[in-house]
Nucleic acid binder design. Structure first.
Lengths: 213, 213
DNA sequence: GCCGGCATAGGTGTTTATACCTATGGTTTT
DNA sequence: AAAACCATAGGTATAAACACCTATGCCGGC
């Protein structure tokens, strides 16, 4: 029987070691590679086929989103499952857009992980219940109030603002000019009637556009 | 030979499973208990002796700090090692004050973890290099006086900041100079390791010092 | 009585955010 | 095709936040 070949990309070494052992304990799985950064992973898949990748979203240097995009450009059949700590709409949307086949929260247990990998390997999707419910409740909450809708790009910027990034850092992350970020900021403030970053964050939390946990 | 009995308290099940396997692989270690929450752990140690506890700091409901305090009240000889994802001065100070014997970053590797456990078990301390350097650079010029938590006045200012007031508005509201508010702001930022208002609000929410709803 | 922590406040910078403005290329809608 | 909207980006300001400095009066512990 052919084992499912799994790679792990996560900057937390302890977590990586742990997942590796958990998965290797399951007969049909074999972790063939793990690394702390996206660059190494991109190099790796150039030479070695991989069935499933468990990809951390929050990583320094090359983010999980960027790594996924570049990986799928090289190997369009690669099945990427995003590992995330939080339930965060922006990450979710970006990763979906990037082409991941599923999400797993780090607080899931090994049975859920096993199920997710099997599901995705056999061609399906896997999105954790909590994330789906959260998204659902958010889209309901959105229709209820707020006449001034933010555009997709504005939501991207809003999310990064609420993570504590400066305009410069947001510009670098989104590969756009700081001036563009400032325009988005100004438009967001106008639409939300917020006077500054703090009021903006309050608005964002109250309108369920971001999560602070 | 007597094995070192280890317990793990962390709300991320996958991480817990992983660490458990990593540690059980090492002959002199034995993970005898793991749980996702502090309450269960407190109950557990009432009946069962434990040598080392790996304690996650960021946990919902009962925090790692509270759990550590209550555990040490019950079992003063318990050796607690804090597991943390971030490098945040307030957390270190609070955990140190609570009586932990060491810190380990989640991005450490298993060798560092093994070393840390052995060191603490044999009566020593273990504070990861990165944390020590960070603390050292922050406490240059300071005395042995531990800057533990926010003062009452700082909490007043923090609350108003998180309500969206500017420094000027806070000054007017508290009948003090804007310069004083700015000093408080700076001290709060230093103590919380936040770089700006957004990061400060994230910290405040995570530490239950403010509510946004 | 001394010392440390705290709240107060001023000085002097740099960096970041915010407020306006114009402008262009690309979609989508009408 | 024209209109409306969006993302992009530059210019020119001011306002606010942040960094690092000194200093003083008050209060509580030793």
């Amino acid at each position: 029987m052919n084992k499912i070949h799994i790679a792990i990309v996560d900057d937390h070494a302890l977590f990586r070691d742990g997942i590796r052992m958990v998965l290797n304990q399951i007969p049909e799985f074999e972790v063939i590679y793990d690394t702390s950064n996206g660059h190494d992973f991109i190099d790796f898949i150039k030479t070695t086929p991989v069935d499933i990748v468990l990809m951390d979203i929050e990583m320094p240097s090359l983010s999980g989103i960027e790594t996924t995009l570049q990986s799928l450009e090289l190997k369009p059949d690669l099945k990427v499952i995003a590992l995330t700590m939080y339930t965060d709409e922006m990450h979710y949307m970006q990763m979906m857009k990037a082409g991941v086949k599923g999400f797993i929260l780090k607080k899931s247990n090994k049975f859920q992980l096993k199920q997710a990998i099997e599901e995705v390997f056999s061609g399906g999707n896997c999105f954790s219940q909590e994330i789906i419910q959260k998204l659902a409740s958010q889209s309901i909450g959105k229709r209820a109030n707020d006449p001034d809708q933010l555009t997709d790009r504005e939501k991207d910027v809003l999310n990064l603002i609420c993570k504590g990034l400066t305009s410069k850092e947001i510009a670098d992350k989104l590969f756009i000019s700081i001036k563009t970020v400032e325009v988005h900021r100004a438009n967001i403030l106008r639409k939300t009637n917020a006077r500054n970053t703090a009021e903006l964050m309050i608005w964002a939390v109250k309108n369920n556009l971001i999560t602070l946990e």
